[in-house]
Design a protein around this nucleic acid. Structure first.
Length: 459
RNA sequence: GAGGUUGUAGCUCAGCUGGUUAGAGCGCCUGAUUGUGGUUCAGGAGGUCGCGGGUUCGAACCCCGUCUCCCUCCCCA
């Protein structure tokens, strides 16, 4: 006999947690629908050829790969053995050993779906998707190996209205969840490219961002040190001066960068797009958009080409709870170029953790049962069955304690489940047809007909 | 991938420089009350001290290995 355990980084969700999670899911789902998004689900596993190379080198390493079934009876045993050993030594993938993996996010499977169904889809296509994803990360606070993402994406339009609507949805959803103090950080891939270009290190925005991103953690000197370690010249670092000093309003930041990007058409375009997004959000009439232009924001996912978003709840431990951006060529890598998309994703598990830390969950009762019937003996239990059916048909969630246990035990059960009403049925009740309805909160009890009980319990 | 930390009853945790039979609170079960829960009172059950090995007359405690939990870095939802 052994104690069962859960795989690292995975969790069970009990009734209480599920009640809370469903509240989050329902809030997100209804908002997505309000904005015209349609549901989609894709398989847990995808072919590795679909997943590999979409998330950068780090991402590839975090993919959960699925071992081919039937390996033991492989025709070419020696070759399989060799490939298997090789795959253990390094991040190497052989079709002989594995050709499928668990999805890493919902955006890439979505792009795959769009390409495969391009002829049936009406563009612009707006879909939402709420499913688990898997990453072979090392678990820690707010980080799991299996977690749920709630994505909303639009493909087939370049309109910045989509970006603006994303900001609106973020505000809407977090507002409904009761999360008030948060920041929606935005940046633009073109701004990052222009930054690298302007300081004389074109194409180096990757390492540049990784370093700058740590500004608030390790300070300016730390960043400069790291940049120099990453091979940036002193000259290049000196040119970053304005970036370090950026810490104003959206328009102030834009103005500063405008000067820096005087010679960069790319940079100008990125700034123009961001300004347009902000202007559109304002046009929607959103009072406080929580938007903040953050030049150091660099979403790791390599497929973003336009605006990038990240939502951080302030004064909590957890990192970002949502992220997204525009990707111009994701479907291109599957053979359908020219379809631009924008999307974003909520991390439900992190939202849950944040809400728990901020104590935003009401004292919900996981049970939805309104009334429980108690029969004193087998005859009474039988007598209760048509009544139970009557209650349920009246739309009242009800149950009957299935064992003929002692009254005390049955009441105890109802009490610990938080069931508000109980109907007691014994010989007296069966004779008169008047049942004893007990209010579990007040303890009051009265003899009533089934019709009267339905009336009271339903209210 | 690098580093740190934790593991004792269902849960939260005590357990002294190694020393008889490993404790508490909560929860659970039974009874006071054979037709009445949430309060109270009385009693009871429940532990391979994560796992494996070692040191010792003797190990929950010391040593080695291993797994696990949580955390930091990297990266990310």
């Amino acid at each position: 006999m052994q104690k069962p355990t859960l795989p690292k980084g995975t969790r069970d969700f009990g009734p209480v947690q599920m009640t809370r999670r469903n509240f989050i899911f329902d809030t997100i789902k209804s908002t997505f629908q309000q904005f015209g998004f349609l549901p989609l689900e894709t398989p847990a596993m995808e072919n590795l050829s679909v997943l590999m190379g979409k998330y950068g080198e780090e991402g590839d390493q975090l993919l959960f790969k699925i071992l081919n079934n039937g390996l033991y009876e492989a025709k070419n045993k020696e070759a399989v053995k060799g490939a298997f050993e090789k795959s253990l030594q390094q991040a190497y993938t052989s079709d002989l050993v594995t050709e499928r993996g668990l999805r890493y996010d919902l955006t890439v499977p979505f792009a795959r779906y769009v390409v495969m169904n391009r002829n049936e889809i009406v563009f612009p296509f707006k879909r939402y998707q709420i499913q688990p994803v898997w990453r072979a990360d090392r678990p820690q606070k707010g980080r799991y190996r299996e977690f749920y993402q709630c994505d909303a994406d639009v493909v087939g339009t370049n309109s910045l209205l989509c970006e603006a609507e994303i900001v609106c949805m973020m505000n809407e959803i977090l507002g409904k969840l009761g999360i008030a103090d948060f920041t929606i950080k935005v940046n633009h891939r073109k701004v990052l490219s222009a930054l690298a270009e302007v300081i004389g290190a074109p194409g180096q925005e990757g390492p540049l961002c990784v370093a700058i991103d740590k500004l608030d953690k390790i300070g300016r000197t730390g960043v400069e040190k790291e940049l120099s370690e990453r091979g940036f010249s002193a000259e290049a670092i000196r040119k970053l001066e304005p970036v370090f000093n950026i810490n104003g309003s959206f328009t102030e930041n834009t103005a500063q960068l405008q000067t820096l990007f005087a010679q960069s058409a790319t940079g100008q375009q990125g700034l123009a797009e961001l300004s347009e997004v902000v202007s559109l959000v304002e046009a929607f009439g959103v009072q406080n958009s929580h938007l903040q232009f953050d030049v150091t924001l660099a979403r790791g996912l390599s497929y973003y080409t336009g605006a990038i978003f990240e939502v951080k709840v302030n004064n909590v431990q957890i990192g970002s709870i949502s992220g997204g951006g525009r990707y111009d060529n994701l479907t291109g890598s599957f053979g359908l170029p020219g379809v631009s998309g924008v999307g974003f994703s909520f991390g439900v598990d992190r939202i849950y953790d944040v809400m728990e830390e901020l104590q935003l969950f009401p004292q919900w009762n996981a049970t939805t049962t309104r009334v429980m019937l108690i029969g004193f003996d087998a005859a009474a239990q039988r007598y209760a069955l048509p009544i139970l059916r009557q209650l349920r048909q009246a739309g009242i969630n009800s149950e009957l304690y299935p064992d003929s246990a002692k009254l005390k035990k049955q009441l105890d059960y109802a009490n610990s489940k938080g069931i508000p009403y109980v109907v007691l049925i014994g010989s007296n009740e069966m004779e008169t047809g008047k049942l004893a309805l007990k209010n579990m909160t007040t303890g009051e009890q009265q003899a009533l007909s089934v019709t009267e009980i339905i009336k009271i319990v339903a209210g």
